[in-house]
Design a protein around this nucleic acid. Structure first.
Lengths: 144, 144
DNA sequence: CAGGATCCGGGACGATACTG
DNA sequence: CAGTATCGTCCCGGATCCTG
């Protein structure tokens, strides 16, 4: 698989990323497939994307992010940040002050990822109406 | 959220897309957020991406896709194709022959989506080593 | 303030069996 | 061949309580 650690079955507390399954491997021409898929999963993860977006303009603190994203639980924020940190997309800097302070910041890699993601986001914005109407049409023509 | 139909709670049989949750809305500046997020989810969905890839070079039949993707269950293939069809990314053409034959083909919209997706894929390939090593480093430095 | 530990429901997904 | 129906499992993710 590539991403997860497979703690066997249970709910490993601080799991770096409880994502992905055993990964049956779609048998592609390129063996890169798995790695690519795991990156795509990152992008498909709503929270990860939002966090990356919020970090666009400089480092942020934990609760700062939590407030900005509004709707994320602290559990998911922690998990998401751990995942991003694990992939080398964000850095986590601890200030041993009291009360404690932790800053999260995009790495160069993370900033690099922003570009293709934004491209996709712009495509999404540009075509969201087409998609929305396609959906309603499909739904209408397809229920009693 | 924009993608699903919310059959209330149960497992609606032919649900266009049993994906996504109630969508707490991350309170972004742009209201586009939801629509964009749903598109990103599409891309994050491994199967959807693979199907789109396999359809790059012309229309394919159901079992043809199933064999090409190898590892996908017919259930997920059906669900995935329905989702893509619903979003107007692929078309479904039925030939009332016997035995039945159904062709799936990318729409212009679907082909358009390929480009940003490929951009992302290329980024992923280009940096997968960085990410992989970041992961192992993270994992090593972080377990007893 | 930043996050670990736990409990728990619901939905995603696979496997199997059946149909037009 | 191209699906649909049903069942069961797993695990994602929210809510809550606790700590340094």
């Amino acid at each position: 698989m590539g991403t997860s650690l497979k703690p066997k079955h249970s709910d490993l507390p601080a799991a770096p990323r409880p994502n992905q399954r055993p990964e049956p491997m779609p048998d592609p021409n390129h063996a890169d497939c798995r790695g690519v898929a795991s990156v795509l999963s990152r992008v498909g993860d709503k929270w990860s994307v939002f966090v990356i977006m919020m970090l666009s303009d400089g480092p942020k603190r934990f609760n700062e992010l939590k407030r900005m994203i509004n709707g994320i639980s602290q559990r998911m924020l922690t998990l998401t940040l751990r995942g991003l940190e694990r992939d080398g997309l964000v850095t986590r800097t601890i200030f041993p002050t009291i009360p404690p302070r932790v800053d999260y910041e995009l790495t160069d890699l993370g900033r690099g990822l922003q570009q293709p993601v934004k491209a996709l986001g712009e495509w999404a914005i540009k075509h969201q109406e087409q998609i929305a109407s396609a959906r309603t049409r499909f739904d209408e023509r397809n229920n009693a």
